[in-house]
Simulated scan of single mutants.
Amino acid sequence: MLVKDAIISKLNAAFSPHHLEVIDESEHHRGHGGWREGGETHFRVIIGAQSLEGKNRVEQHRAINDCLAEELIEQVHALVIKVQK
């Protein structure tokens, strides 16, 4: 399974978002730390989910990072998170 697909699947299961975009930005980081051939190292997540509302930004990011812990340890070098209402 592609890392992007795993991220989408896990975020959908954990948060039932009404909006979700997962963008692989790896190519923008070619030659930088953490980049590797084939990409799937740098991602941007834009998510809107009722379950994240009422939490401050740190709590939102912790919840998402906890959900994606396996990917962050093993495969993803950088994750940008934007939570929408």
Rank of each mutant, 00 (worst) to 15 (best):
V45R: 08
H19S: 14
S26T: 02
L79V: 03
R36G: 09
V80A: 13
D66Q: 07
S26E: 03
S9W: 08
L72V: 06
N56I: 07
E27W: 05
A63W: 13
L79P: 03
H28K: 14
D5A: 11
Q60N: 03
V83I: 06
A14Q: 15
L79C: 02
I73R: 15
S16A: 14
K55F: 01
E25D: 08
H29I: 01
M1E: 09
V76S: 04
R36L: 12
K4T: 01
I23Y: 03
F15L: 00
E53T: 00
E59K: 14
R62E: 11
A49F: 04
H19R: 11
I46T: 12
V80P: 00
I8H: 10
K82A: 07
V3K: 01
K82W: 01
V45N: 04
V3C: 01
R30Y: 08
L68D: 02
N12S: 07
R62L: 09
Q84C: 14
Q60R: 13
V3S: 08
H19F: 15
L79T: 03
H42T: 02
E71F: 07
K55L: 13
D5C: 00
D24A: 07
T41A: 05
A69M: 13
K82I: 09
G54K: 03
A13P: 05
R36H: 10
E59V: 05
V45C: 12
V76A: 04
E71S: 06
I64E: 09
E25P: 08
D66I: 01
K85M: 03
T41E: 02
G54V: 04
E37Q: 12
F43V: 00
I81N: 01
C67V: 08
E40C: 04
L20Q: 01
F43L: 05
F15K: 06
S16P: 02
V58Q: 15
G54I: 07
R57D: 05
E37L: 07
A78D: 00
V83R: 05
D24F: 01
F43C: 03
L2S: 15
G31C: 09
L20E: 02
K55Y: 06
G34E: 05
G48D: 06
I73H: 15
Q50P: 04
Q75Y: 13
K82S: 09
V45D: 05
K10C: 08
G34S: 13
A49I: 07
S26D: 10
